Simulated scan of single mutants.
Amino acid sequence: MEWIQQLINGISLGSIYALIALGYTMVYGIIKLINFAHGEVFMIGAFVGFYAIAGWGLGFFPALILSMVTCAIFGVLIERIAYRRLRNATRIAALITAIGVSLLIQYTVIYARGAQVEVYPNVLANKKFDIFGVQVSSQSLLILTVSIILMIILQFIVHKTKIGKAMRAVSHDMEAARLMGINVNTTISATFAIGSSLAGAAGVFFGVYYTKIEPLMGVIPGVKAFVAAVLGGIGIIPGAMVGGMLLGIVETIVSAIGLSLWRDAAAFIILILILLFRPSGIFGKNTREKV
């Protein structure tokens, strides 16, 4: 029964990684850019949620929505200011810019509010439920449930709405989509907005789950989410979801067997193994790239 409990905890943690990984994979699928500033959007989401709850007295769900909206706007601004002019530049130029944006956001936040750690208010009653003899916390269930709902909404947007069809068209062939009358800039901005809003939600979940947040908190979860995206198949939305869940389960199992100091290393070991044996990821297809 202990293993079932750890499995549920791992899936809850993995759902947070999955939400962040979706932003990486959506942006890469559209413009082939690894947005390494995405972890900082996650951090901004955590702080917006914190100030909304602790400063303004909002409840969990209003704070979650505010964080998602703020991060969506923030993501669009990052794309508009930092990435749009580099769309036809070399990939290394865009990658260096993404790292620069990441550092800029981190140290701007430190300059504005200091580097001290904040403790999330206990906004959710953390009750224990006995399900078939397994003790499951209400926080884990809520995080998992809301994450799954957000992923279902994302799937609906991508496959059933006009902007989702535009995203898929731009991802497949940007020039052909432009010739068909699709506004490529608007579509890319919408992609950044949706991916960033999910990272904002993940930031609030992370704050509630781990209670402590600080300006450099986006680095490790951001890298782990990138590993999750690569594990599932970078650019493939279901792959990011599955990769995040698997990574969360692996981390929880590593901690459960007494190797908690290795939980961060586990993500990088997985990344090395994936790059060695299946670079395209679980859902990816091996394709040759012409040079």
Rank of each mutant, 00 (worst) to 15 (best):
I236P: 00
M167L: 14
A193E: 04
F205V: 08
A199D: 06
G218F: 01
T187L: 09
S196Y: 09
V227E: 01
E175K: 15
A199W: 04
I194Q: 03
V184M: 07
V208H: 00
V158C: 11
G200C: 10
G164P: 08
K224L: 10
T161S: 14
A166T: 09
Y210M: 13
G232R: 02
P221E: 03
R168L: 15
A177E: 05
A229S: 11
N185H: 11
G207H: 04
Y209A: 09
I194D: 01
F192Y: 15
F192N: 05
M180R: 13
M174Q: 14
V230W: 01
G235K: 08
P215N: 10
V208D: 00
F192G: 05
F192W: 15
V208Y: 00
A228N: 03
A190E: 00
G218I: 07
S189H: 04
V219R: 09
G218Y: 00
I153V: 14
A228G: 02
V170I: 10
V219S: 08
V204S: 05
L179S: 13
V158M: 14
G218Q: 00
M174L: 13
Y209P: 03
N183C: 13
I182F: 09
G207F: 05
S189A: 15
L154Q: 04
G195R: 04
G195I: 08
G233T: 08
A229Q: 01
S171W: 03
A166K: 11
H172V: 07
G195Q: 04
S189G: 14
I153L: 12
K224T: 09
K212P: 07
F205N: 06
V204Y: 03
G232L: 06
K165A: 15
K224R: 14
I188F: 02
A228S: 11
Y210E: 12
G233R: 04
S189D: 11
T187E: 01
A202E: 05
A228R: 02
Y210K: 11
T186C: 11
I153C: 06
V208T: 05
E214C: 05
A229W: 00
V204N: 02
L154P: 01
H172N: 12
G222K: 02
I163C: 09
A201T: 13
I194W: 02
F205R: 08
M180T: 11
V184E: 04
S171Q: 10
G195N: 06
I182N: 05
T187I: 08
L198Q: 03
G235Y: 03
K224V: 10
A169H: 10
I220C: 13
I236G: 01
G218S: 06
I237P: 00
F205T: 06
N185W: 11
V227N: 01
M180A: 15
A229Y: 00
A229N: 01
A176Q: 13
D173P: 04
F205K: 06
N185A: 13
S196F: 09
G200S: 10
M151S: 12
